[in-house]
Amino acid sequence: MSLLKPGHRGCAGCCDALAGKFVLDALGENTIVVSPTGCLEVFTTPYPESAWGVPWIHSLFENAAAVASGVEVALKALGKKNDIKIVAIGGDGATLDIGLQAISGAFERGHNFTYICVDNEAYMNTGVQRSGGTPLYASTTTSPAGKVSFGNPQHKKNMPAIIAAHGSPYVATASVAYAPDMIRKVKKAADVKGPTYVHVHAPCCTGWRFEGSKTIEVGKLAVETAMWPLYEMENGVVTNVRKLKNRKPVEEYLKAQGRFKHLFTMQGGLEEIKKIQAIADWNVKHFGLE
């Protein structure tokens, strides 16, 4: 059985639950997990139950990287075996927004740990508010589409680049829709010495408004349209990308989700979709996806 046990309270088809399971599949029982506040944390540990088959700690929303670094240092100080893998698993809000300073500090200090961002592109736990990971024009509860708005006006923050700029030896993007690829990357991240990072794309059926049975499908469309490029960086250099054979237009990805529906119904919406297509085109060029 998986080390992330069944019976938790995640939505049916939950992306975060898949991500948590794949991380533990990759790392095994010799692992300590640190979770910031967010969906995965809340739905796995309704006291007195816990879905975690490994030691686990949740402290606050914005300090997972600092807590993880303290765990790492304590094990060193206590002379405990150094084959224990320490992993922080945080949402996009915990990672790109409120926890960024603690992450920066931990990566600068060079702790031997892995930070995994489970990016479902909004604050899901509190009801789908926008975050720094919310893509252009996604409608969220705090960036709703409306008569004079196409939804979230900002572009998604490029977190992997920020981490790479800290000199991390290994940074990768992954997707819950590509389990073997994700598991390989998480394993590799944990095996590489030093602070490493895996940014996992995680389509949230509840927040993005699609059927819970379509999580993998939507995740695949993100990759196939080049909205979510899969790549690995070693010491700041892109060393591996997942190439696209028959790239799909972004409309196919957008249409599958309620959060972009307004772009197809509002006047001028189709014109705005060109801006999203431009993001995909940039990804193709920048990462050499074709």
Partner: peptide, 8 residues
């Protein structure tokens, strides 16, 4: 925060 992790 680091001490929370270390103490735990």
């Amino acid at each position: 925060s680091a001490l929370i992790g270390a103490s735990a």
